[in-house]
Design a protein around this nucleic acid. Structure first.
Length: 404
RNA sequence: GUGAUGUUAGCUCAACUGGUUAGAGCAUCAGGUUGUGGACCUGAAGGUUGCCGGUUCAAGUCCGGUACAUCACCCCA
């Protein structure tokens, strides 16, 4: 028999406990903030009928989508983003989802891209969207919720860049996507691309200068006015006429959030897209939303050291002295767990104490409980603080106080 | 889809222009102390040098292909 090599698929990742804990912390935090704004959870299947997803993401998307036949010979595809499934859900459950519908969705999506920095084939998307209203207040709430989310994660030095699709009125999508690269390739780079796409040098220059000098329109100034009272802190908010987000489906607001001291790109972006959600019905439905770059958020927070020190699971390790005293250990464990203290037992009664302590040390468990013959006699236990090395023998009832 | 670079022990790396039996640190396991972790010491285990083929008396080393990884383009989160 051939030996099977343990490995992961190209572009797919394992998250070992230290990493997985960080991710869960971020998800938990985001979820709480989303819900505080009235967004409700939505989950959709990983697999959809291919026809639901096909033709929705352009040529590139079509190439990158995971498609195959299932056992029943149905043509299926893996979730490619969360917006198309949202559109499907809105069309499918019209009678059960009164509009406006506010939902958040935190699930994996799959794209068969070539992996590179911060890009994988399986990754989490965190989306919030409000469907069924074109009110500017909905736009403002999305932005406020996004800012609040990052703020709660400790990302306090953030900058909001905001623009409106009307800045690019009448301009071809291909041209817009070149202009969007302004920050990356500079003015010369954009002009070079534009002339390559068939524009004359002076035409391109005139266009670019005109865009750079655009002033915020009425919608944007209204958004500015509305957002200030919503946010207690005064965040830098900037009108940025060059911002296009590369996507051609936006119809109004476009925004991005950047982190100061982390210039790998935006960690959140979104806008209004009033012509997309209605794709499965016969009427258009207005929508506004945004998406967090989950992996970038994790990376930025790691760089800036923003994760709480004690993202621990186990609080107490109860050691086992011998087979005879195992029962005493189990009693203590049961007591601690009843008090909602995360407790684990060293699973081998024959293991020496140093090995059991070493295990606690490696797993960063803050407290270790020892119950040997001495303690058993007096119906007590010794509790050791692994950080300070202090230890004392106490009655079992008193142990909870020390740990908590 | 395109391009650049790389792949040697679980991890990080070494091995002069091709030349005996491919080395080290960390991690693992055992012991140094049978009720106390992080340090230290001793020892053990761990490799068909990513895979397939070619050149050569001889390949970890050279050549071709392929898989994977990293980075970039395209595109995007």
């Amino acid at each position: 028999m051939n030996k099977i090599i343990p490995r992961t698929l190209k572009g797919f990742r394992d998250f070992l406990p230290a990493e997985a804990r960080k991710r869960q912390y971020v998800i938990d935090t985001l979820r709480k903030v989303f819900e505080s704004y009235g967004f409700e959870p939505l989950e959709t299947p990983a697999l959809e009928y291919e026809e639901i997803l096909a033709g929705k993401y352009g040529e590139e998307g079509e190439r990158l989508m995971y498609k195959f036949e299932d056992k029943g010979r149905r043509k299926v595809a893996l979730r490619y983003d969360q917006t198309v499934p949202l559109a499907r859900v809105v069309a499918q459950y019209q009678n059960r989802l009164p509009l406006p519908f506010k939902r958040y969705q935190i699930q994996n999506v799959w794209r068969g891209e070539n992996p590179q920095a911060g890009r994988f084939r399986e990754f989490i998307q965190c989306d919030i969207d409000t469907v069924g209203t074109s009110s500017l207040l909905a736009d403002v709430e999305i932005i406020a919720c996004a800012l609040d989310s990052l703020y709660k994660l400790g990302l306090k030095r953030i900058k909001l860049l905001i623009n409106d699709r009307s800045t690019f009125e009448g301009i071809d999508n291909a041209i817009i996507s070149s202009i969007d690269k302004y920050k990356k390739v500079g003015k010369e780079g954009v002009l070079r691309e534009l002339t390559q796409k068939g524009m004359k040098q002076d035409e391109a220059e005139t266009l670019l200068n005109k865009i750079l000098l655009t002033k915020p329109n009425a919608r944007i100034t209204k958004i500015f006015d509305l957002i200030r009272p919503l946010l207690k802190t005064s965040l830098p908010i900037e009108f940025d006429p060059i911002l296009a987000r590369g996507l051609d489906y936006y119809t109004g607001l476009i925004f991005e959030i950047e982190i100061e001291g982390y210039d790998v790109g935006s960690v959140c972006g979104g806008g209004r897209y009033d012509n997309l959600i209605g794709m499965f019905g016969d009427k258009q439905i207005a929508a506004v939303g945004c998406s967090f770059g989950f992996d970038r958020v994790i990376e930025a927070m790691t760089d800036l050291n923003l994760f709480p020190d004690e993202l621990l699971t186990t609080k107490v390790l109860v050691t086992v002295f011998s087979e005879e005293l195992l029962e005493r250990s189990l009693e203590v464990i049961s007591n601690l767990r009843k008090k909602e203290i995360n407790t684990e037992v060293y699973p081998d009664a024959d293991a020496k104490m140093d090995k059991q302590l070493k295990y606690a040390d490696q797993k960063n468990i803050p407290y270790v409980v020892l119950i040997g013959p001495k303690e058993a006699e007096s119906d007590s236990a010794t509790i050791k603080n692994m950080k300070t090395g202090e230890q004392k023998t106490v009655k079992i009832e008193d142990m909870v106080k020390i740990v908590k």
